[in-house]
Structures are given as structure tokens and as C-alpha cells.
């Protein structure tokens, strides 16, 4: 028996269909170039109601260009029984083109006690035969009892362990143990520096690698970096050390990597400086914005064995 606030997925799909028909009829395609409805996956984003909605919308909209998808944003709130949904679209005109590309957006607002209902609404809305990715940005949902039902909706789950209230290593490890393909943006942030280190350390067998991090406590990135190097180079001694002089910068993040006495890598604004031999080189590493990190993670829908190996090393 539907409640007063029930949402019928069929109605949402009808609304979407009508929406596209209206968009298709707007303007003369000969003049405007028409529009292209694009969808390569379903992205289900769980966010807390308090999160800056404009910033979130901009982040998600920018993802559409590289990963056009049916976007379902679920905003979770405390308090009274609430469940509502509406549909809209995100469109953009690629540079030099005449035709707009559009993706569809379904926004669901739900109180945390309706989370079980959310699962039954979102499941039929996912695009058929395409990957479903869950982006967990809500601290509320991590604590919610219906989490298991929600996670079952996704082929991949993306978290950011460096966010406040985000799942920790133990919980992420639990997702892996339950068989979920999982990504952590704290790990994704390391790709440029890992790629550089992989190149610098090729054909080397260093005795000792020291990772210095800003401040007094190693953050998730520093710990992932240590775990990756240690699991990749089991004969090397890879250690973490606080770097008080860089304490003013992002607390807990890696700032220097020393490889024996041969290689010194300093992570600096927008890049890295490294000494390997007589010349100081610079590598460009623009700070990864959240959309760039998400773009990278959305491009990987299989188990990431390198990440999983590092995580297992931390949680062991």
C-alpha cells in the first residue's frame, strides 16, 4: 500500500521521457543542431542535505563530459518522514560543435528513515545493461542500518576516506570483503606521484624509502603510499615520518619521498621537483580537483588489484 509520500519509479521514467520529447521539440534542429541524449552508466550519489548543493551540482555536471550518465542524486536529511523526487537535465555544447549533449538528472530527497524505500526507487531507475556506480558522500548513510541494501545497487562504490565522517580503512576493507568493487579518492589523488615514483624506481632495488608527511599524524594518502611501495617492493624498508617543517600544509599528506641517498622527490604546488642524478627535474602535477579524481575512478569499473593489495596491507 503506497504511503502519501510514495514515489513511483514508473512515473519518474515517464517524466523523463516527456522531458526529452519536449527538449527534442524545442527549436528547429536544422538551426540549433538538435541535442544528443547520452548515457554510459548510472551514477548514484548519496549526499547529506547540508552539503553545498551548488558545489555538488557543479562537480557532478562537470563529470558528464567525460562520463555521460544518468545521474541520481539522493539527498539525505534527518527528521520527519520525507520522500520526494524531480527530474531535470544537464546539457552542454562541446566546443566547435552545433549539437548539445544532454544527460538526465533525477534528484531524490529522503529522510534517513526512508533509506530502505530509496533503494526500491533507485533500483528501477538505473539504466539497463550499463555499469552502476555509487558515490558515497554522506556521513549519515555510513551509519545507517539500510546501507547494505543501498550498496547492493552498485557495481562500484566510491568513497573518499580523507573526508570528515567518511568510511575508514576498516569499513572500506569491509566493502572489499563483501565483494564490492571499491575506489577511494584518497588513493586516486596519489596516481601522479605513484606514476613518477614507478618511473624513478624502475630497475632499482632500494634498501630504504622514507615518506615524510606534513604534521604529526599520517593521513590516508601517506599511508596508502607507504602500503603501495611496501607491497610492490617487499625487500625494501618503507617507512613514514612526520615532517614538522611542512606542518603548515595539508595535514597528514606526503610531502617528501627519499629513496636511499640517490633520489629525493619534493611534492610542491602543482607538481614535484626531483633530484635523480646531477639535474633537478620538475614534473607537472596539477592538483587533482574532485571531478578529475572522480573521472579517473569512474573510468575503472573492474577490481583494482593494486589498490586492494595496498588496502589489505593497511588493514592486516
Amino acid at each position: 500500500m503506497p504511503t502519501a509520500t510514495a514515489i513511483r519509479p514508473d512515473d519518474i521514467l515517464k517524466q523523463l521521457s516527456a522531458y526529452w520529447t519536449d527538449l527534442g521539440h524545442a527549436g528547429d534542429p536544422e538551426e540549433t543542431g538538435g541535442l544528443l541524449r547520452a548515457c554510459s552508466k548510472t551514477l548514484i550519489c548519496f549526499a547529506d542535505e547540508e552539503e553545498n548543493s551548488q558545489q555538488l551540482s557543479e562537480t557532478l555536471a562537470s563529470l558528464m563530459r567525460e562520463h555521460p550518465c544518468r545521474m541520481i542524486v539522493v539527498r539525505l536529511q534527518d527528521g520527519e518522514d520525507a520522500l520526494a523526487a524531480n527530474v531535470s537535465s544537464q546539457c552542454w555544447m562541446p566546443f566547435g560543435h552545433r549539437r548539445q549533449i544532454c544527460c538526465e538528472l533525477v534528484e531524490v530527497t529522503a529522510s534517513i528513515n526512508r533509506l530502505a524505500d530509496v533503494a526500491s526507487i533507485v533500483a528501477p531507475l538505473a539504466a539497463a545493461d550499463l555499469p552502476r556506480v555509487i558515490l558515497l558522500r554522506s556521513a549519515r548513510i555510513v551509519r545507517a542500518g539500510a546501507l547494505r541494501k543501498i550498496l547492493a545497487l552498485g557495481d562500484k562504490i566510491i568513497v573518499d576516506s580523507s573526508r570528515q565522517g567518511a568510511p575508514g580503512f576498516g569499513e572500506i576493507g569491509g566493502l572489499l570483503d563483501a565483494g564490492h568493487t571499491t575506489g577511494d579518492l584518497a588513493w586516486t589523488r596519489l596516481t601522479p606521484i605513484r606514476a613518477l615514483l614507478a618511473q624513478l624506481l624502475e630497475n632499482r632495488n632500494p634498501a630504504a624509502i622514507v615518506i615524510e608527511y606534513a604534521g604529526k599524524e599520517a593521513g590516508p594518502e601517506a599511508r596508502y603510499l607507504q602500503a603501495w611501495l611496501q607491497t610492490s617492493l617487499p625487500d625494501s624498508q618503507v617507512s613514514l615520518r612526520g615532517n614538522a617543517t611542512d606542518g603548515h600544509r595539508d595535514h597528514g599528506k606526503p610531502v617528501v619521498v627519499r629513496v636511499d641517498k640517490d633520489i629525493l622527490v619534493r611534492l610542491c604546488e602543482g607538481g614535484a621537483e626531483y633530484e635523480a642524478g646531477p639535474i633537478v627535474h620538475r614534473a607537472s602535477m596539477p592538483p587533482g580537483t574532485e571531478e578529475q579524481l572522480l573521472n579517473e575512478e569512474l573510468g575503472i569499473v573492474v577490481h583494482d588489484r593494486v589498490f586492494e593489495r595496498a588496502l589489505n596491507h593497511i588493514t592486516a
Binding site: 605513484r194 606514476a195 618511473q199 624502475e202 575503472i300
Partner: peptide, 17 residues
């Protein structure tokens, strides 16, 4: 980078020279 390098991560690293 050699495909046999223990530090390789083919899912994420681009080909390098």
C-alpha cells in the same frame, strides 16, 4: 615503463617512454 615492473599499475598509469 616495463610491464614487468612491480610498481606498474596498468589501470591508472599511462604508457611511459
Amino acid at each position: 615503463m616495463s610491464v614487468n615492473s612491480p610498481l606498474q599499475d596498468p589501470l591508472r598509469f599511462h604508457r611511459k617512454t
